[in-house]
């Protein structure tokens, strides 16, 4: 608990300074609302925010799950064949140089305003960290272990299932943690292009209506949502790879 006290204290101090500065300098609410006004605005529009929260979570989850499957597929493909690796790898990097905000209206043009273009954007944002981490995990397996299995006469399939896959899980979860945080952000951005529900669209509407306090409230919710999704990944990781987390030593 002790290690949490300083960040909490610091955060509190920032909020306090913010609160007092706003009232001290008489800053207009539509330019910068105070923390108390933001909390108040959140409480006022809580049912509205909840109404817009649901589709965002839904899209983010579907997009992330899609990204997981795509990532596993691509990583295994690259692991299995040097040729595939040489073909795919550069395009993986290039895919990350495309500004997704520009891509979003194009996808809307091609796929309409429905769920599909949104999920494609989220998956595009999320798949990269998972793929790269998983692939690095495959590559990072101790060569001595491979030699051991080789001496036992294991085939490639067995080596993959017995060693490469489990050994890469910590790396996979590292990537997934990043992707989980991206997924919420991806969902919000994808909604800017057109949606009737979602935190992204609520954000746009609030900005255009100069409801700056609500903008901040929504930003706060997006932040909390991202943290929660990272925490969920963390919990799943701790449950599925407990060996990675318990490193206490016992002497014989």
């Amino acid at each position: 608990m002790k290690q949490h006290i300083f960040p909490i204290l610091f955060g509190f101090l920032v909020l306090l300074t913010w609160q007092f500065s706003v009232s001290f300098f008489h800053i207009e609410q539509w330019i910068l609302p105070s923390p108390i006004q933001i909390i108040d605005s959140f409480w006022q529009s809580r049912s509205l925010i909840f109404f817009h929260l649901v589709p965002t979570i839904f899209e983010a989850s579907i997009g992330l799950i899609g990204a997981i499957f795509i990532s596993i597929f691509i990583a295994i493909l690259m692991e299995r064949s040097q040729v595939m690796k040489k073909i795919i790898y550069p395009f993986l990097i290039i895919s990350q140089t495309i500004p997704f905000i520009i891509l979003a209206p194009l996808l809307t043009l091609w796929f309409g305003f429905g769920l599909l273009p949104k999920i494609i954007i989220i998956a595009l944002v999320c798949f990269f960290p998972i793929t790269i981490n998983l692939f690095d995990g495959f590559q990072g397996v101790d060569p001595s272990i491979l030699r051991l299995l080789n001496s036992m006469g294991a085939n490639q399939k067995q080596i993959f299932r017995l060693v490469k896959w489990p050994a890469s899980l910590p790396a996979f979860f590292s990537g997934l943690r990043i992707a989980a945080a991206y997924s919420i952000l991806g969902a919000v951005v994808s909604e800017w292009m057109g949606a009737d529900r979602g935190l992204g669209i609520l954000l746009i509407r609030s900005t255009k209506s100069y409801l700056t306090d609500r903008v901040f409230a929504v930003i706060g919710i997006i932040t909390i949502l991202s943290i929660v999704s990272v925490l969920i990944v963390e919990i799943i990781a701790r449950l599925s790879i407990p060996w990675h987390f318990n490193k206490l030593r016992v002497k014989s």
Partner: peptide
């Protein structure tokens, strides 16, 4: 000859997930 010996290395090479 693969699989016909019990081969052990200097490092334990145990699988941490098992």
């Amino acid at each position: 000859r693969q699989g016909k010996f019990g081969y052990m290395f200097q490092e334990p090479l145990l699988f941490p997930w098992l």
